[in-house]
Design a protein around this nucleic acid. Sequence first.
RNA 1: GCGAGAGUAACUCAGCGGUAGAGUAUCACGUUGCCAACGUGAAGGUCGCGGGUUCAAAUCCCGUCUCUCGCUCCA
Length: 508
Amino acid sequence: MAKNNKQTDPLAKLVALCKRRGIVFQSSEIYGGLGSTYDYGPYGAPMKNNIARLWWDDMTLKHDNIVGLDSAVILHPKVWEASGHLKEFSDPLVECKNCKKRFKVDDVVEPFSAKFWKNISQMMSSFEPGKLIQPEHLPEGSPERSMTGKILLHAQLKDKLVEGELPDLDNHVYNEYLLDAYNQCPACGEKNSLLKPRDFNLMFQTNMGPVEDENSTGYFRPETAQGIFLDYKIVAESARLKPPFGIAQTGKAFRNEITTGNFIFRTREFEQMEMQYFVKPGETSEWLEKWRQLRWDWYLSLGIDADKLRWHEHPKDKLAHYAKEAWDIEYLFPFGWGELEGIHDRGDFDLKAHQEASGKDLTWFDDQEKERYHPHIVETSAGLNRTMLAVLCNAYKEDEQAGEKRVYLALDPKIAPVKAAVFPLVKKDGLAEIAAEIYDDLRTRFPVFYDKQGSIGRRYRRMDEIGTPFCFTIDYQTKDDDTVTVRWRDTLKQERIHKDQVKAYLEN
RNA sequence: GCGAGAGUAACUCAGCGGUAGAGUAUCACGUUGCCAACGUGAAGGUCGCGGGUUCAAAUCCCGUCUCUCGCUCCA
C-alpha cells in the first residue's frame, strides 16, 4: 500500500487503530499472516460479543415466539446436497465477462465438442472413415487445425488421432482446448467472452474421524440457516410454538470466497446472526415487510447513521436458487455500499428439499384448520463482522482539541468494550488508593479500566481511542467532599458526582 | 488467476554499497497537576527468507514467501 493511503484512507486509519489498540488485527502474524483471517483482541472480542448479544436479545427477549438455537457447524454431508450448496459450487465453472452468467464447463463444452467433430468430419470428407487425421489436412487458421495440433502435441498421440474417436486425454485439458477454439457464450452469444474455467469449491471440506477416506468427508457450514431448518420441528415442539414463530442462531460459517478483502468485510471464516421465521403459506409478504422494518430499526439502535443505510432489492432475475424475494440492508463503507443483512423470502424451498432428500415428513400440521403444509420461511441473515465494521466506521471520529488532533470512537455505550475508566488525577497523595477502591467496587459488575500511569490527558485519549464513554477522575476535591468528576468522551465535558453514585451512573 | 504496491524496533517510517537510525509507544526515577507536558535513564532489530556479486550488502542482482489494494465472483 502506498504510504500516503495510511494517513488519508479512512479504512486504513481504522485498520491501524484497530491493530494499535487491540481491537482487530491480522491473524497468525508471527508466521507472516494468513490471508483473510483476523483475530479480535481484548477490546474487539467484547465489542463483537456485545453486538451479538444485542442481536440475540432483540430477537429472543423482544419476541416471545422466537427461540434460540446453537446447531452444529458440521452437519450431515447430505444436507449440503439437498440445500443445493454442494451442487452449485463444486463444479468447474466458466463465466461470461459480457453477461456475467456462470456455466458448468461440461455443459458449455459439450456442443463445442460436437461442433469440432462435425467440422472435422466435413473437412475430411474426401478421406475414408477411420483415417488418421493430421493438422495439415485441415484449413489453415481454422480452430479445428489448431485443436488437432494441440491434442497431438499434448497427448503425444502423433499419428493416432482417428476420425470419430474421442481423443484419449484428460477431460480437463480437452475442455480447455475446446474453450480456446470455440469460445462463445451460450447465453448472450458473445464470442471470446468466457473466462478460464475455475473450480468453485465454495465449501470448506474436512474429514470426520481420524481416518481419511471418501466416506469421511464433511463440510463446515456455509450458512447457519440449514441447521435451523433441520431442527425446526423438534424446536417448535419442545418450545411449544406454532407458526408464525422464529428460530434464531449466531455462529461461524465458512465460505471459500473467490475474493476476500476490505478488512473484515469479506473473510472466509465469518460469523452470522440468522433468524428463520416460519409462517403460514400466503402470509409471507406481510411478515417480510414487518421484518424489514424491524431489522432496519435495529441498525439505528446501534447508533448507525440513517443516511448511511439503504435498501437494495435483488432484481427478480438475479435471485438465489431458493429465494423469491430478497432485500439487503447496505451500509456506506469507505469503500462503497456493502451488504450487512439480507431479508429473504425463502418460500418452502428448503423444507421441501430436505423432506425429499431425507424422506422425513417436514410438513406442519395445523390442528385448528386441520391442514398440513410446509411453512414458508422469511429469513433475516446478518453478518456480525460486517455489522461490527459498520459500527466502527460509523463511530470513527477525528476532532481538534487545543490544536491537537484527537481520534475517538463514538461508540454507543451498549457496544463499547470498556464502559468506564477510573483515574487518580495523580498517583500520589492517596488519590490512587481512593481510585483503586472505586475501581474494585465496579470491576466485577462492569468492564472498567484503571490507570494511574502518566499524564491525565494521555489517559483520557487512550480511552477515547477504544470508545470508552466515561472516565471517572479522583482529584484533590474528592478528599474534601467525596465527589469525583465524570468526563464524557464525545464532548469532553465534566460534571461532579458523589463517589457513591458512580455505580448508579453506569447502570444508566 | 491477472495487474500494481509493500515487507527495517511494539507502531509510523528514514537510510539505498562503508559501525542499524528517528519520532511515537513501553518501563523506571524525578517533576507537573484535568485533556497525547517535561527532564534523566533503560529496554527493544539475524533490515521477510534463501542464494549470488563485492574487501564490504538493509542497500545491487536472482529466486522465494507473505501481506495489502484493484479486477473477475459473492445463496
